[in-house]
Amino acid sequence: MTSSTGALRPLLLGLGIMLVAFNMRPALTSVGPLLDAIRTATGLGNVGAAYLTTLPVLCIGLACTLGPVVIRRLGADRGVLLAVAVVALGSGLRGLGGLEPLFIGACLAAFGIGLSGVLLPGLVKREFPARVGLMTGLYTMVLCLGAAAGAGFSVPLARATDSWSFALGLWGLPALMATLAWIPFARRPDPAERAVRRRPLWRDPLAWQVTGFMGLQSSLAYILFGWLPVVLQSRGLDATEAGFVASLMSIGQAPFALLVPSFAARAKDQRLYAAALLALAVMTILGLVFGPLAFALPFGMLLGGSLGGLFGLGLTIIVLRARDTAGAADLAAMSQSVGYTLASLGPLGFGLAHDLTGGWGASVALFCLIAAAAWLCSLGAGRNRTVGTR
């Protein structure tokens, strides 16, 4: 019985990680398709909408700073349980209606998302050291499918229930299911795990390059999670059509999110992957904003592929640039705390640029500048080196 349970544990743990990963994006991607309905019902202006898409990303960054503390106090396994429970609470809170529950719930859910994002890379390195690329790709793919579900089903749910807030609150249910499913894995931390004191990385240039790449490529994704449906509706698509394109963008992330980490983990150098994916992101956003709407669906799928590949590549680089499990958690905490704080400025800047100019040209130019900065960071982050060495 014991040996059978031990043999099944990696499979069950892997499934548990996938359930947690599924809930790391719907709280973020479900808002964009409903943003016009929220603004109509609550009187939320353009600046308020920009803050609604920015504050959760900032909360993700703040939560990431607590990763090492949570590992020492609770252990990574119990930390994941706490994180996904907070996602469930925050997502459900949005169902109460009104701006206060919406903002508070969004920030709470984002806090749980940020905490789980720091803990999962270390768990993968600890539990699946020989399959880092495969497991990173799998949970990134499932994460992208969760993003697609949030983008694609939120408008139909709102219309079926005649309530945007109830539709947002329903996303607390899959997070609650993941919380219950993770309970068997919430074991006590090993004394050695709690005793680890991680080396500071703030003076390590490579750590900063990884942080810059992670934050800037995430900024591109969060810009599009929050603003792509609005852009498409301004071009003439209705809310359902715009949500469908956003959902396809998220679905398009899945195959790239699976394949890019698997191939990149085997390569000696990840710089070419970063350059190709960033170029694809720039070309497809230009096509969506300025090209014919007849090509919105294929452009959306390709844009999603670039974003999914970049996110999977960023997570893979974190694991590859670390020498051990503790180093992976440390680098994940730094790159995601600082990185997501940096990423939070993207949606805000994108929205403010539109508000100031009345068009999308300046906003798209900002997107391209962020992509160029991410490429510059990838020149260092993609090298075959590890943090803490020269």
Results as ranks from 00 to 15, higher is better:
223 I>R: 10
217 Q>F: 05
211 T>C: 01
207 A>G: 05
187 R>S: 15
187 R>F: 13
197 R>E: 15
187 R>E: 15
239 A>P: 01
221 A>N: 12
237 L>I: 11
207 A>D: 07
216 L>K: 02
220 L>P: 01
216 L>S: 05
206 L>M: 04
234 S>L: 10
216 L>I: 12
210 V>H: 01
222 Y>S: 08
194 R>D: 14
237 L>C: 10
199 R>P: 14
183 I>Y: 13
230 V>G: 05
208 W>M: 04
214 M>E: 06
217 Q>Y: 04
222 Y>F: 14
223 I>H: 12
191 P>Y: 04
231 V>I: 07
226 G>P: 00
232 L>M: 08
230 V>R: 03
181 A>W: 04
231 V>N: 03
215 G>M: 08
215 G>S: 03
199 R>N: 14
218 S>M: 12
213 F>G: 02
227 W>C: 00
234 S>G: 11
214 M>C: 03
245 V>L: 02
239 A>E: 14
246 A>M: 14
242 A>I: 10
216 L>H: 03
225 F>A: 05
185 F>E: 02
199 R>T: 15
193 E>C: 02
241 E>A: 14
243 G>E: 04
225 F>S: 02
199 R>E: 15
193 E>L: 02
194 R>H: 12
249 M>K: 01
181 A>F: 11
199 R>C: 13
181 A>H: 11
183 I>N: 09
227 W>V: 06
249 M>N: 05
236 G>R: 09
237 L>Q: 08
193 E>Y: 01
245 V>M: 00
237 L>V: 05
181 A>Y: 00
212 G>M: 03
220 L>S: 02
204 D>I: 05
240 T>H: 14
232 L>G: 04
224 L>G: 02
196 V>K: 13
201 L>F: 01
237 L>M: 10
249 M>I: 07
243 G>Y: 01
182 W>D: 03
219 S>F: 14
238 D>K: 06
192 A>F: 07
198 R>H: 12
246 A>G: 10
227 W>R: 03
209 Q>D: 05
189 P>D: 13
226 G>K: 05
212 G>L: 08
200 P>T: 06
234 S>V: 05
191 P>R: 09
215 G>F: 03
233 Q>E: 13
228 L>F: 11
185 F>K: 09
214 M>R: 06
